[in-house]
Design a binder for these strands. Structure first.
Length: 878
RNA sequence: GCCCCGGUGGCGGAAUGGUAGACGCAGCGGACUUAAAAUCCGCUGGCCGCAAGGCCGUGAGGGUUCGAGUCCCUCCCGGGGCACCA
């Protein structure tokens, strides 16, 4: 390259950089600028092309910056996006911020910094980091859950739920976390501690907003069937919904005429084996069931149970405890007296909070009966028993036939379930019932940094007056949402659309109030208002009542929504993110519909993914979206562990910072390495040495296709022809890379490209078209590198506009195929045979093979298995 | 306890029931270089053997099959989820 090039013949490229070597720190920012200026990544709203919508779970922009796990999934979707673009799709690949949430608020509490400022700073940093990795995101569609223009529609969706009667308030024992100063949902509590921060939690009764997700239990369960999701995730949701079929049975109470105890059981066939009853300590009938002599003992027990954390009640306390109430229930068929006990192994929150205990056929009841010396009556015997009775080991939990069950003895248990249930129903003593483990979704938090509820509380008379207004009536549910506080009833009124968004007030302190109310309770001018229900206008109650009619006194809801709210529908806002009049236009929804692929961590298997499905189904029922499910195809990327194989954490000092990798090796190398580590779904350790390998691969390709001055290598020629071996390998590579991308097997796609690169080093000439085609295959993985080489080899920028290479199946077939020779299943040699060689040809070749022949000598050929083009197995004996 | 998913060289991993270990890392030997880096070439599962070659080998044990990393059964280990849900 002596004296050539630089200065005299440069620039030869219009867009590419001028660097002779693979200088990624010059190339990458250059192409990032190019993409930004040309909006290469823009998804067109109106297009004749078929759409492809690929979605990442948007991140919570934490102060720590991007974690190395983020770009793992993002690179996977980015490859898909670029590939689908090359396949002629109009690709939507958006990014946004799930920016409400506790860490930002904790930071505000500690420092006084406004959460909005912290969020903005963190978002800017995340965006910078993500852009530095060259992702094909449509930045014109960025969404931010904390932006009033966004959460206006989160509030709007809440109001649709409210109107449909799917949102209600309830005073209920909830998980209260003292350290976080808030209530947590069941799903956010793990082993009696908060999922976030691992603080202890206790039960506490508070007024809460609750969403009636249980109304959709059946839909949510059935919908799973058609989803292309990991099986484990579907199973988790299935288990979480926890559908059981059984019966609700009514037991009259001896001491309370006219009162009865309802139980739920999945085993109505064991009705005749019920020997006692159990109610949960919190069951409302407990005080009345308690007989005088037992009162002290029952009250002590109930008090103790209330004080126990759930950790004690479940994990540590498998030993049964309980107290007899002193009263009896009457068996609905036999009329026999069954003692009613209080025990904390029965949960108020499931079923009816009471059970009929069948110790002979339930492990828990059996343990309890043993502890308290209660009778055990067998009513099911294994099907292979012919005797009537007691032979089986108790408790017997298996299938069988009924015994000791007047009128039903001898029946198969499944039939007995149906018969007994039907008979109870006819007698007015029970009915078939489906029960779910799924509980309604506790939807409020006593926090500042969340979406405010677009709800005000008013007196009964003001509510009645408002309800009569034509503007207000359509916004209300059939049943008013109401709660009582110190004998005063408060009625919920929604803000009309015109009053949205309801923004957060400025407050002096972000500390929770400690009383169970959020910091919003201290923003008095925001909180206590004069309210005009028809228009939604408001003014501080500290001021005078405004002129005109229809103004009432109101107090705003002080709770805020949980972080899940914003992420429940963000994938829909991307369709039309700037729409000021609707959450998204019907046209945008008609074209983009729902994501074709959703990629994100398995840690959201139940929470986010179940909540979002719930909201989507509600929107579907409202006619707002056409599909019944939001995420047809779901994929979980795995977790990247630290170098030492343990989870990355600051305290272990094994955290990998993407910024440093980009600085040292470039974004393309990082992307390639993340994909090369192993299967996308696998958990795999980071290996800093491994990154050298993929970096070398890029440099090797650069060196191979370009000369030392950075221009097309001398061995490139413009003819169509390559060596047949090169041609075949190239077409194999196109095939493999294409199929692997479609199946998200990026690691094997990369290894195939490495195989091809290794081959390129050995050839002395190469068609320029082959070189460019190879660069196209690399481009989705290493996009800056791809753009740079594409143009230097003569392609018009950008490579993203070039159609994906197609392979020619005819180029993959060879005249000769390798056949492996086995004798008795052991490999003894191989040989090349014509593709159409017969079994006889193959056997002849094997017999002639010097290393195979000795194993056949003097032995009788008993069987021949011939798989053309693969294997010949000769089974011999003697 | 119950339900999933895994277990393959020194390491990450690859293998429609058909040559186990592709590709990469690490290691060893060599070339280039005054030297180093970079790059290139070769070797690299274990055991026996001078070699040709043979035997063994995918957590353990059994089974199905002409043939098993792959399918079936039992067990061990690791990871994830659920956990008194009647």
């Amino acid at each position: 390259m002596t004296g050539s090039g630089i200065g005299s013949t440069w620039p030869i490229f219009t867009m590419a950089t001028q660097c002779p070597d693979y200088n990624f720190s010059e190339i990458e920012p250059h192409w990032q600028r190019y993409w930004d200026e040309h909006k290469t990544w823009r998804a067109e709203d109106r297009s004749d092309l078929p759409k492809y919508y690929v979605l990442d779970m948007f991140p919570y922009p934490s102060g720590a910056g991007l974690h190395i796990g983020h770009p793992e999934g993002y690179t996977g979707t980015d490859i898909l996006a670029r590939y689908q673009r090359a396949r002629g799709r109009n690709v939507l690949h958006p990014m946004g911020w799930d920016a409400f949430g506790l860490p930002t608020e904790q930071f505000a509490i500690q420092t006084g910094a406004h959460p909005r400022d912290t969020s903005r700073r963190n978002i800017d940093n995340f965006r910078r980091q993500i852009k530095s990795l060259g992702f094909y995101y449509d930045w014109d569609r960025e969404v931010d859950t904390t932006d009033p223009a966004y959460f206006r529609w989160t509030q709007w969706i809440f109001l649709q739920l409210f109107k449909k009667g799917l949102a209600y308030v309830d005073e209920r024992p909830v998980w209260w976390c003292e350290a976080l100063g808030t209530v947590l949902a069941n799903e956010e509590v793990i082993d009696g501690r908060s999922e976030r921060g691992n603080h202890p939690v206790v039960r506490r009764s508070l007024r809460q907003w609750v969403l009636r997700i249980t109304a959709y239990a059946e839909d949510l369960l059935n919908g799973l069937k058609d989803l292309d999701w990991p099986d484990s995730t579907k199973r988790m949701q299935e288990a979480w919904i926890g559908r059981s079929e059984g019966a609700e049975i009514r037991f009259d109470l001896e001491s309370l005429p006219g009162q009865s105890l309802e139980v739920f059981t999945t085993r109505p066939d064991t009705l005749f084996g019920a020997t006692y009853m159990v109610v949960a300590p919190e069951h409302p009938l407990v005080p009345r069931l308690t007989a005088g002599a037992q009162r002290a003992a029952v009250e002590a027990y109930v008090g103790k149970a209330a004080a126990k954390s759930d950790l004690e009640r479940t994990d540590l306390a498998k030993d049964k405890s309980g107290v007899f109430t002193g009263s009896f229930a009457l068996h609905p068929v036999t009329g026999s007296r069954l003692p009613v006990w209080v025990a904390d192994y029965v949960l108020l929150s499931y079923g009816t909070g009471a059970i009929m205990a069948v110790p002979a056929h339930d492990q828990r009841d059996y343990d309890f009966a043993l502890t308290f010396d209660l009778p055990v009556q067998q009513v099911i015997e294994p099907a292979d028993h012919s005797g009537n009775g007691d032979a089986a080991t108790l408790p017997f939990l298996g299938e069988g036939r009924l015994v000791h069950s007047d009128g039903y003895t001898g029946l198969d248990w499944a039939e007995a379930k149906a018969r007994i249930t039907a008979d109870l129903e006819a007698a007015g003593k029970g009915r078939a019932r489906v029960q779910y483990k799924l509980r309604d979704w506790l939807f409020s938090r006593q926090r500042y940094w969340g979406e405010p509820f677009p709800i005000v509380w008013v007196s009964e008379s003001d509510f009645e007056a408002a309800r009569a207004l034509p503007e207000v009536a359509p916004l209300l549910p059939a049943e008013p949402v109401v709660y009582r506080e110190k004998d005063i009833a408060w009625y919920a009124l929604p803000l009309p659309d015109a009053a949205l968004p309801l923004e957060l007030p400025e407050v002096e302190s972000y500390h929770p109030s400690g009383s169970g109310e959020s910091p919003l309770a201290r923003a008095t001018d925001w909180l206590d208002i004069w309210f005009h229900p028809a228009s939604g206008r408001s003014t501080p109650a500290s001021g005078p009542r405004p002129e005109g009619s229809g103004w009432i006194r109101a107090r705003r809801e002080t709770n805020t929504m949980p972080q899940w709210a914003g992420s429940c529908w963000y994938y829909l806002r991307y369709l039309d993110p700037k729409n000021p009049a609707e959450p998204f236009s019907p046209e945008a929804e008609a074209y983009w519909q729902t994501p074709d692929l959703y990629v994100g961590g398995a840690e959201h298997a139940v929470l986010h993914l179940l909540y979002a499905r719930f909201w989507h189904k509600v929107l579907h029922d409202l006619g707002v979206v056409r599909s019944p499910e939001p995420f047809r195809k779901l994929f979980h990327q795995g977790i990247i562990l630290g170098e030492d194989g343990s989870k990355m954490s600051k305290s272990l000092g094994n955290v990998v910072n993407p910024d440093e990798i980009v600085k040292d090796y470039g974004a393309d190398t990082l992307r390639l390495y993340l994909m090369f580590l192993g299967p996308l779904e696998a958990m795999k350790p980071w290996n800093p040495k491994g990154i050298e390998g993929v970096h070398r691969f890029l440099r090797k390709v650069w060196r191979d296709l370009l000369d030392p001055a950075g221009r097309p290598a001398a061995k490139l020629h413009d003819g169509p022809e390559d060596h047949p071996a090169t041609e075949r390998l190239f077409h194999e590579t196109i095939k493999k890379v294409t199929e692997d991308i479609e199946n998200l097997r990026f690691n094997t796609a990369i290894s195939q490209m490495m195989v091809f690169a290794n081959h390129l080093q050995k050839v002395d000439r190469l068609a320029r078209a082959t070189a460019s085609g190879f660069v196209q295959l690399i481009a989705p993985f290493a996009p800056h590198f791809g753009e740079e080489l594409w143009e230097r080899l003569g392609g018009a920028p950008s490579v993203t506009t070039a159609p994906w290479p197609a392979y020619d199946p005819a180029k993959l077939v060879t005249d000769e195929v390798k056949v492996v020779f086995q004798v008795n299943g052991k490999v003894r040699g191989d040989g090349f045979l014509p593709r159409e060689a017969t079994e006889a040809d193959a056997v002849a070749a094997a017999r002639a093979h010097p290393r195979v022949a000795p194993h056949l000598d003097g032995k009788a050929l008993r069987k021949t298995i011939y798989v053309p083009g693969r294997i010949l197995n000769l089974v011999v004996s003697g």
